[in-house]
Amino acid sequence: MERIPILKMGRFLLVTVQVDMHDRLAMTLQDDLTGRIVKDRAHGVLIDISSLEIVDSFIGRMIGNIASMARVLDAETVVVGMRPAVAITLVELGLSLPGVRTALNVDRGVELLKGCIEERAQGNGHVAG
């Protein structure tokens, strides 16, 4: 069965979504990713969606779910590389992905994750946004 690969980058996991995601694939990714967070003891998840030409409410919900589940498993999620047209459409659709962190590209995403984790390590458990 088709699967979206999950790469390990130090304490982070990187998922690059490169195919037109159908619903089953999205569900599999959700399962795989939560499994890997626990197995690899990951502290952060980067989801690179720069290749995605659309994000509908189903995929949006999946991203939101992954972020929530990851948080329960003590990992932060950053969605990177959303295209302008996709962002405009998502806003119009009424989906603002509350609680999901975002970054322009993978490098920025890594910086953001490092920042979050440092913050947490310093003991102030506040997570903004």
Binding site: E53, I54, D56, F58
Partner: peptide, 17 residues
């Protein structure tokens, strides 16, 4: 335009589902 394409494709995806 790219934005118009994305909007109609997204709407189509929602309704097809």
């Amino acid at each position: 335009s790219l934005v118009d394409q994305t909007k109609i494709v997204t709407a189509a995806s929602e309704l097809a589902r």
